[in-house]
Design a protein around this nucleic acid. Sequence first.
RNA 1: GCCUGGGUGGUGUAGUCCGGCCUAUCAUACGGGACUGUCACUCCCGUGACUCGGGUUCAAAUCCCGGCCCGGGCGCCA
Length: 418
Amino acid sequence: MIKMILKGWIHEIRDLGGIKFLILRNREGLYQIVLPKKKVPGEIFEKVSELNKEDVVLIECEKKESKAKDFEFEYLPSEITVLNRSETPLPLDPAEKVSAEMDTRLDNRFLDLRKRKIYSIFKIRSDLLRYAREFLLNNDFIEIHTPKIISTASEGGTDLFPVQYFEKKAYLSQSPQLYKEMMMAAGFDRVFEIAWYFRAEEHNTRRHLNESTAIDLEMAFIKDEEDVMETLENLIHHIIKNISENCKKELNEIGVEMDIPETPFKRITYDKAIEILNDRGSTIEWGEDLGTEDERILGEYMKENDIAYYFIKRFPAKKIFYIMPDGKYCRGFDLDCNGVEITSGGQRIHDHDLLVNRIREFGLNPANFEDYLKVFRYGMPPHGGFGMGIERLLMEILRLNNIRECILFPRDRNRIKP
RNA sequence: GCCUGGGUGGUGUAGUCCGGCCUAUCAUACGGGACUGUCACUCCCGUGACUCGGGUUCAAAUCCCGGCCCGGGCGCCA
């Protein structure tokens, strides 16, 4: 006979008259509390009739073997204390008898998060970050944090959110790129950052957030982009292997089985990708970026060959100004998973004059990049790195079809609360 | 930014094309009752809804116009 105390929420109440069953839920799972009329104190038996779903309770009880289908053990209560009541009816049902739409779920996210499946997503998210840090720290990377309030939009590219910074205008950062490269010039050799980024793009899709998180990495003294790719594939492998082995309960709750990808990952060139795509009916021409549909077709091609994770490399040089060119190609790469881009990176230009020329070639004014360019004048080693969206990665690993599932309180085109 | 779909009780839905026994379906929830092994407990009774405004019509959840809100595809996406 083991006496114990259980704390949690009332998940379900099944009142059969002479016997009552309470299902208690907490972070660990579900517990069956059994109350046969003749075996529990009368006042406790009566008290159960007053309980509502989602009341928070503390139960002093005795643990015993159970004959129940779903439970190995059950608990006979000697005292039930209501710590706090829940109003009725609930805005959504954490026991998931009826589903709720994404909007209802997000409006009541704290209740949505009480669902076992939803909790499991965020437990795995936490573990994903743990294994990522573990790998990177063990491989000599230093964790850094760089500013998220930045002074100018000189990085170019996407739209930034403006913020009022006292008497000055500032922006929310959309990438730590510039700062990671500064840290290479600072002699830190290998750095990574796990942080928030903000993008003011008015997209409205299952795959985009306006506030998202990423694992960014930069490493110096590399031979070429292959050094970075090797780090990336080993990182992914470490993360997936560990989640697969240590998060069985959560994966089961979500209902996914994970395949651990073999390293090294498949590499294909941009040229080869174009060839495959043209073979399969895409009208993409050399020099163009891969569209969403192109990425999907390529993912299908890979799937036919049992490949989930693959690199695309040797893109046309005109793709991004700060990536190291190599003839008409460049040393940038993307890592795609099942037809979705999850990482992009490459070897960066470390030569100041080359960088200035590239900035001009892209129709930009080097004078606007002075803070950035200065870093390249006083001894910048060869370097490269990548940025990987955490929500995108989690979405692919868990095969969720909406990126909003992968972040606690999503910020999208319409939503800024709760 | 372009294109597209939607808004029915607390929640999820049927009905909308083709207006009329819609006094709006079903489930779940909620309130009351019965029940000693449930495990989506079961059974009985009850409560509760057409996004807003205008128009067409004898008649509007249904058709038309506008507003508000939301989804999705593409583009964009260091």
